[in-house]
Simulated assay, not measured.
Amino acid sequence: MRIAIATDAWSPQVNGVVRTLQSVRAELERMGHQVMVISPDLFHSLPCPTYPEIRLAFATTGAVGQRLEEFSPHAIHLATEGPIGVAARRWCLSRDFPFTTAYHTQFPDYVAARTGVSPEWPWRYIRWFHQPAEGILVSTGSIAETLHAHGLPQTRPWGRGVDLSLFGDVAPDPGIRALPGPVQLYVGRVAVEKNLEAFLRSGHPGTKVIVGDGPARAELEARYPDARFLGARSGAALAGAYAAADVFVFPSRTDTFGLVMIEALASGTPVAAYPVPGPVDVLVPDVGALHEELDRAIALALTRDRATCAAYGRRFTWAASARQFLSALVPGYPEELAA
């Protein structure tokens, strides 16, 4: 099967969307499918305002369409609502070619957090982009309910996975392990919409460690000098950080899933979070704690058993995620062909 994925999020960006698409592509290719990714690195681009590491591609319908025509896909998936996604959407509609989309990020909430405008304005754009899709892939039931409430009922489930050869199989980082405990870890973008300051303001004793980078890092690092900002990590260095922490803190209120939560769990580290979409769908009481008071969530999560956390986190696999992706692209796709 030939599958085309159009995405405005791709390497060298470091985020959950990119990791998801790269991991699922690898699984699809392992199954024997051909996957073409139309991404910003194929076009001239400019830095996104306030997010310079994200490139906005000058992707015309003609340029994207030429690549699609040459590939002659059996299925087309539009992963993002940016310029490449819009160009691919226009090409599909002009040819009555069915396509799926995905709702990876709470775009209306992100825009509201950064600009102060009402989320209803960006929701108009979200409805416009996704309404013609045969299916909208969502990572959790809560996000499906959100889309249904905004007039987008055609959701299809698409879970996430963990690289089990990495997370849970790397020794704890000795430098992080030696910090005064309990070590409280955050992994992700350092940006306003991640609500990281709620974690940095929390009063639970121990050491706060932040792995990641982003536009808010310099300001937050200056304002919270007791926290350890380690910058972006990947591979074994990231896995070692998860394994060294006593608790993983996920302060975001706007994520659709929170891939970092299951990576932490697979590493044996319990999770503390707010009771909001994403955490409420992913976490169960034995592996973490949800509370509107983040200090209380941290204290409760620290009582969870690490072996139980690891066993639960290892239930999330990219192979299962890829099978769900295929089924969403082609409803009724025989699962034995996806094995």
Rank of each mutant, 00 (worst) to 15 (best):
T7D: 03
W10L: 07
S11Q: 12
P12R: 12
Q13E: 15
G16M: 10
V17S: 04
Q22K: 06
S23I: 00
R25Q: 15
R25K: 14
M31H: 00
Q34Y: 02
S39N: 09
P40V: 13
P40W: 06
F43W: 02
S45N: 08
P47T: 07
C48T: 07
C48P: 00
C48K: 11
C48N: 11
T50P: 00
Y51T: 12
Y51D: 11
P52I: 11
E53Y: 06
L56Q: 01
A59N: 05
L68T: 12
L68D: 02
E69G: 09
E70R: 15
A79K: 04
A79Q: 07
A88L: 01
R90S: 14
C92G: 08
C92T: 06
T100V: 09
H104W: 04
Q106L: 14
P108R: 00
Y110F: 13
Y110Q: 15
A112F: 05
A113D: 10
S118Q: 10
S118L: 08
P119V: 12
E120H: 04
P122Q: 04
I126H: 04
I126G: 05
F129P: 02
P132E: 10
P132R: 06
G135C: 07
G141P: 02
G141D: 14
S142Q: 03
A144S: 15
A144L: 01
H150L: 05
L152M: 10
Q154R: 14
R156W: 13
G161D: 07
V162P: 02
D163H: 03
S165C: 01
G168P: 02
G168A: 08
G168D: 08
D169R: 12
D169N: 11
V170R: 13
P172F: 02
P174I: 08
I176M: 11
A178N: 05
P180H: 13
Q184S: 10
Q184V: 08
G188F: 03
V190I: 14
V190H: 00
A191W: 04
E193R: 08
A198M: 11
S202Q: 09
S202R: 01
G203D: 03
G206Q: 10
V211K: 07
D213E: 13
A218L: 12
E219I: 02
L220R: 02
A222Y: 03
P225C: 09
D226N: 09
D226T: 14
D226E: 15
F229V: 06
L230E: 11
A236Q: 13
A243P: 03
A245E: 03
V247K: 09
V247W: 07
F248N: 02
V249Q: 03
T256R: 11
E263V: 11
L265E: 01
L265R: 06
A266E: 10
T269W: 01
P275W: 01
P275E: 05
V284R: 13
G288E: 12
G288D: 10
L290Y: 04
L290S: 02
L294N: 10
D295N: 14
R296W: 01
T308V: 15
A310K: 13
A310R: 15
A311K: 11
Y312F: 15
Y312I: 08
R314P: 07
T317V: 11
T317R: 13
W318E: 12
A320I: 06
A322D: 04
A322I: 06
L326G: 05
L326D: 10
G332I: 07
G332Y: 01
P334H: 02
E336D: 14
E336K: 08
